[in-house]
Nucleic acid binder design. Structure first.
Lengths: 217, 217
DNA sequence: GACACATTTCAACGACCGTTGAATACTATT
DNA sequence: AATAGTATTCAACGGTCGTTGAAATGTGTC
């Protein structure tokens, strides 16, 4: 039992991640988590100090990796043509495409994580604090890049545009089934190619419409 | 006690709405709700049949009014120039501006409701089913109007664009404090004028970029 | 093999959960 | 004033919650 390849602590985090993502923090029981993780209840409190600490650990575990690969993606498009700033589309694609790559590689794990993030982002209880704690440095880095790509853009505009982006992004990656229901099967939330082709275009157009002087009507 | 102006049933719904919006369905206790409503615990089960039924009643109460005024707003822009379909901006403004008007009139009540909807929309547990049940007829009506405004648009594009819109909209109206934190006070989630001036423009640009042949680069 | 130390098991604590049945108070009609 | 129906109170139920202390087991070191 408790194979080395999947140590207990990781199994607990996996189980907690999936259950929290599906039903939220409060409705999931520590006993449910530990049953799914095939471990005794008390082990949750040995490896983590409380249910809440376990929740934070779930969030933190993948946040670091996520921030790293997104930052790499941004650096890459910035280095691609060092004399001029990257386009808005490129910056936004660097923000969103890493998520799609992760989903392609380990779909289940990251899908649960993104569903969890969507709930956190949209919760008044946690949205403000937790998103700030885990993602602000990276987000500020992207906003800085966007400012360079949109030199005529006002300060407030950038933040509002990012806020709209954030809502669209988290809902899309949450895969709640809403899109599938509404479109009566014509679209699938899990269709990553559709997301990749459409989301950066949609969001970049929004940024440009608010942040740069319109050429004409 | 239990003044006619604020009957018990309504007070229970108000209290439940505020608490559910703040902390989610599961972490709120029926006892907490009834304490806030200044009524005995058992009354929750007299006026509603269960905690879950109370939750549904909270969602349903304002959904009807909301659907009505949004539909009116859409009809109004459609009737404004009966010979041609309204523009994408006008349609989206008809979808979003009624929310702002409600917030202007009874800010607190509707603010709690929108925060609740944001959580429901982003929950895998509820997002698919509940949003469909309460809002699909209206949403389909708007999608139909958008189809007319964007005759060259593919079927899938419209649903994806609406999905992006839905995410941006629900997060924005949830007022989680995230925008305020990220912008370090430069923007306020509660600044309704900012939303009205920016959101329809941003979203309409996204629709047009994906749904209509680009004039140039 | 004795030792320290990390990990796991087991049983239980008090608190609080959603829910209910029976008794009481209110309100309006006759 | 008697009655019927609605609204409210009170006390409690079985169950489950997060959490813990103490005992048992495993693991590597000298």
């Amino acid at each position: 039992m408790a194979s080395r390849a999947h140590p207990t602590k990781e199994r607990i985090l996996d189980a907690a991640e999936e259950l929290f993502a599906g039903e939220g923090f409060a409705s999931v029981t520590v006993r449910q988590i530990m049953k799914k993780a095939n471990a005794d209840v008390a082990l949750a409190y040995y490896h983590f100090d409380s249910k809440r600490d376990l929740f934070d650990a779930v969030l933190l575990r993948r946040a670091e990796h996520l921030n790293k690969i997104r930052l790499d993606a941004l650096r890459e498009v910035e280095d691609r043509h060092p004399d001029e700033p990257p386009s808005v589309e490129e910056i936004i694609a660097a923000f969103t495409n890493p998520l799609l790559e992760l989903l392609g590689r380990e779909h289940e794990a990251w899908q649960h994580y993104f569903a969890l993030i969507a709930q956190v982002n949209n919760s008044p209880e946690w949205g403000g604090e937790l998103m700030t704690r885990y993602f602000d440095p990276l987000v500020n880095r992207f906003i800085e890049a966007l400012r360079k790509a949109l030199p005529d853009c006002g300060e407030e505009e950038i933040f509002w545009c990012y806020h709209f982006l954030s809502g669209a992004l988290t809902l899309t990656f949450a895969e709640t089934g809403r899109l599938d229901n509404l479109s009566e099967g014509r679209c699938s939330s899990a269709d990553m190619d559709s997301i990749m082709q459409r989301m950066p275009v949609f969001l970049a157009a929004g940024f440009k419409s608010l942040c740069q002087p319109k050429p004409a009507n």
